[in-house]
Amino acid sequence: MATDAALRRLLRLHRTEIAVAVDSAFPLLHALADHDVVPEDKFQETLHLKEKEGCPQAFHALLSWLLTQDSTAILDFWRVLFKDYNLERYGRLQPILDSFPKDVDLSQPRKGRKPPAVPKALVPPPRLPTKRKASEEARAAAPAALTPRGTASPGSQLKAKPPKKPESSAEQQRLPLGNGIQTMSASVQRAVAMSSGDVPGARGAVEGILIQQVFESGGSKKCIQVGGEFYTPSKFEDSGSGKNKARSSSGPKPLVRAKGAQGAAPGGGEARLGQQGSVPAPLALPSDPQLHQKNEDECAVCRDGGELICCDGCPRAFHLACLSPPLREIPSGTWRCSSCLQATVQEVQPRAEEPRPQEPPVETPLPPGLRSAGEEVRGPPGEPLAGMDTTLVYKHLPAPPSAAPLPGLDSSALHPLLCVGPEGQQNLAPGARCGVCGDGTDVLRCTHCAAAFHWRCHFPAGTSRPGTGLRCRSCSGDVTPAPVEGVLAPSPARLAPGPAKDDTASHEPALH
């Protein structure tokens, strides 16, 4: 009773807030009518008042009428009001819900409408889902798969039609296919003929059939049928067999079959498995989609049935006599038709004709302190090069084509190399640097090759510096006499390219 009084008091307290929050009759008014909170006449009256005075006034009048009803109607109103779709449509209802007392429970059932309790003993237990329907569909599909699609060729003596089998029958139906081979029951999904010589313990000319048996419980189990008994694959494991010639990621696949039913060829011909030897223990289905393919039931050349050999690369099948050149017997292992072999060759040939990528240039590290003349020119003028003790990398590039010797140069053309002071002394051009340390401070000019250098860098042994005729380390061993002091540049003949010694390969005349 306390809860009923509290709900009535809360409705009177929030009546105006609810009326202002509800700006549309749908969905709240319609939901109240659906849950029998508002009768039909009051529903029509509220809609009429909404058209006349507006939605807030109409709902305020409806809530005032609701306060005169019993506690069950008020409880049902609060339940409908706080439904998710009403809270989404009328956003101003959320503060009312947040301020609702926590001790007021809106989930209690309506009085007088409590459903009768059902004894637990009368409640049926839930049924577990079964796979009976899938099993029945598999039974119905198996006879259809064994139905012949056409008439065999005159040369083929193997013609068999499976008798119709009602689904209610649980007995196995067997077809006489000759040579002791028996087909599987209607619940078998796949059958492959297997030679009895590969099964340990088999006697006589009995041949087993590799099947997948579907049981009534819905589970499946792969086994071997020899005669009327089934054997699990673990009985046929043979770890010492060295003649297993397995197909790549293979499961067994029928390579020879008669049109209309699988079996042995007439005249004692023995149908073979995809792999010879003992049956392997793992009978998992292969991951290669080509091995799941269903080959055609007629020859791809003459479009006739009979004894066919199936290609492992495509769905086509052929007569042995229709092949070019014809085959006398079934080859062992994987067999592919000429079209598949030709496609494989065409895929391999473009790969062989692809040009080989060019090898990157060989990189040879230079000892610290040495650099090529090109690196000396590329440096920024007026700045010493940083990191001189790091190992430089010199790339061996292809030799350029031989060019004509340089033409003779006048001494005026070499004027930018040297600057003559007032006393006739050779001065260095701006930006000249030593080729060893890279520093341009207090550098000297070689009178023979006009290269800038430090005496301490080229002659670290402490050799005394002569007063005139300074030469760098590369030119100090040259027998050519030094030019007379005061000459602007060496003779043009000295600039012609010539053979250089091994220790002077990195010091070429550089223009500054």
Rank of each mutant, 00 (worst) to 15 (best):
L93T: 01
G268I: 12
V22R: 05
Q69G: 04
V256N: 06
F43Q: 00
G54Y: 06
L28G: 03
C223P: 05
D36F: 00
L177F: 15
K133S: 04
S248E: 04
L32V: 00
R9F: 01
L75W: 15
G240T: 15
K131R: 00
Q182H: 15
S249R: 01
E167S: 08
A141V: 10
E216G: 11
L255C: 04
P266N: 09
E40A: 00
L28Y: 01
R149V: 05
L63I: 05
D76T: 02
P166C: 14
E17W: 00
R257V: 03
Q189A: 13
R110P: 05
L210I: 09
A261M: 12
D34I: 00
I209G: 05
P176Y: 15
G268K: 08
K114D: 02
Q172K: 08
E136S: 09
V104A: 01
G180A: 13
T151S: 10
T3W: 15
Q173I: 15
Q94L: 06
D34V: 02
A265I: 09
L66F: 01
A186V: 01
A186I: 01
G260D: 07
D4I: 02
I18P: 01
C55G: 01
T72V: 13
R139S: 08
W78G: 03
I211G: 06
R12A: 00
I224Q: 02
M194N: 06
S248M: 10
P27V: 01
A265Q: 04
T46Y: 04
I224Y: 08
V80M: 05
P109C: 06
A261K: 08
F236A: 10
P200F: 07
R15Q: 04
H35D: 00
D238V: 13
R174S: 07
T16Y: 03
K102R: 15
F26A: 01
M194W: 03
Q108R: 09
L75Q: 02
R79T: 00
V214Y: 13
K259D: 00
A25R: 03
G219M: 09
P109I: 06
Q172L: 15
R12I: 00
L66R: 01
E167T: 06
Y90C: 02
A246P: 11
R9P: 06
G91E: 15
S185E: 03
G263Y: 14
F236I: 10
G208W: 03
R92P: 01
L97V: 04
T147R: 10
G178K: 07
K83T: 04
K221I: 00
A5Q: 07
A73P: 06
Q212R: 11
K245Q: 08
S169A: 07
P148R: 09
P116G: 05
E137C: 05
P166H: 15
A138P: 08
G240E: 04
Y85P: 00
P129H: 01
A25C: 04
C223K: 05
V206I: 13
F43A: 00
R9Q: 12
P200D: 05
V188C: 08
H60K: 00
A121G: 14
D198K: 06
P109Q: 07
H14V: 00
K52F: 02
E216I: 00
P126C: 03
P148K: 01
R272E: 11
S239W: 14
P109S: 11
R190S: 07
S248T: 09
S107E: 07
L13T: 04
K52W: 00
A6V: 07
P162N: 00
G260R: 10
V80L: 05
G54E: 07
T16D: 01
R113E: 09
H60C: 00
S195I: 02
Q225D: 03
P233N: 15
S99A: 00
G150K: 15
N179A: 15
S135E: 14
E229Y: 00
K133A: 01
T68K: 08
S217T: 08
P154W: 12
Y85G: 00
R203A: 12
S168V: 07
L29M: 01
T68G: 08
E51C: 01
G155D: 03
H30T: 01
R257T: 08
S234R: 13
L10S: 01
C55L: 01
V214H: 02
E229I: 02
S71P: 00
A140L: 12
N179K: 12
M194G: 07
P125A: 13
A134E: 00
Q57I: 07
G218P: 06
L175K: 07
P125N: 09
D98L: 06
A170M: 02
S153M: 11
K120M: 14
A61S: 15
D70C: 03
S99V: 07
K245P: 11
P266T: 11
A160E: 01
L13E: 07
A140K: 07
K243C: 06
S135M: 01
K235C: 15
R247I: 09
A144S: 07
D84E: 07
H30V: 00
P125V: 13
S187C: 09
R127G: 04
A33R: 00
L146S: 10
D36C: 00
R12M: 04
E216N: 15
K120P: 13
A160H: 05
I224P: 04
L63V: 05
T232V: 11
G269M: 05
